[in-house]
């Protein structure tokens, strides 16, 4: 067996392990929190309370308008200066949740706006309250419409977690860097890291396809 082949086989498991231990849990947890933030933000930005619109608009503006890596550095390296010291995991989850929340809120807002006004009117004319309309009529249709853009946001998040290597978390990318330093095979090792990301995203895309099919059964 060639030397490259041996290195690749030896490296595969440590990198994948970092993916299972860091990349995947970090992505899933951040995404779950991000979705809660996104729904609240989308609704707040469409509410008729102007202060809500303003505050949540400011949030989206800041998090979409600044680089993710810079946000991560501010939270992890910057906040200790004002007495807020977070470990790398907490800093990562906070940053990724807020960042993805800002993007996904726009995906969800756009999906809600894509639902014909007549749906609101029909539900309201039945006498439903705002929350009843949302729950019974708007939410089910929003889920279908927002699946593609929200999955996109999720994919960006998964790939974005590679930035945590720069704040000391031993994710796939950091393990890849360590192996490269030892073996001097950057092309091989980083390609391997890329392939494992691709594998994760492929699974995600497959799940998206199934969900879309399920959510579209009434079309």
């Amino acid at each position: 067996m060639s030397r490259e082949m041996e290195i690749a086989i030896e490296s595969f498991w440590p990198i994948l392990k970092a993916g299972l231990a860091v990349t995947i849990p970090l992505s899933l947890l951040s995404f779950a929190i991000a979705m809660v933030i996104a729904v609240i933000t989308a609704l707040a930005r469409m509410s008729n309370v102007s202060i809500l619109r303003y505050v949540f608009g400011l949030y989206v503006w800041i998090f979409r308008g600044t680089p993710l890596l810079v946000q991560l550095f501010i939270v992890f390296f910057g906040l200790p200066n004002i007495g807020i010291v977070l470990d790398a995991w907490t800093a990562s989850i906070i940053t990724f949740s807020l960042n993805t929340g800002a993007y996904a809120s726009e995906s969800i807002r756009a999906s809600i706006l894509a639902i014909p006004k007549g749906q609101w009117e029909a539900a309201e004319s039945l006498g439903m309250t705002y929350w009843q309309v949302l729950r019974r009529v708007i939410a089910p249709q929003t889920i279908r419409i927002s699946l593609p853009p929200v999955t996109n946001d999720f994919i960006d998040l998964v790939k974005g977690t590679s930035l945590v290597a720069s704040i000391t978390l031993a994710d796939m990318f950091m393990i890849g860097q360590q192996i490269t330093a030892r073996t001097y095979e950057p092309l091989l090792i980083y390609s391997l890291v890329a392939a494992i990301y691709l594998l994760f995203i492929t699974v995600l895309t497959f799940v998206q396809g199934r969900l879309e099919k399920y959510a579209s059964k009434y079309i």
């Binding site: 014909p116 007549g118 749906q119 009117e121 029909a122 539900a123 019974r136 009529v137 089910p140 249709q141 279908r144 009434y218 079309i219």
Partner: peptide, 9 residues
């Protein structure tokens, strides 16, 4: 309504 506005789901 003119456009029915049934709940499609």
């Amino acid at each position: 309504f003119q456009s029915f506005n049934l709940f499609p789901h």
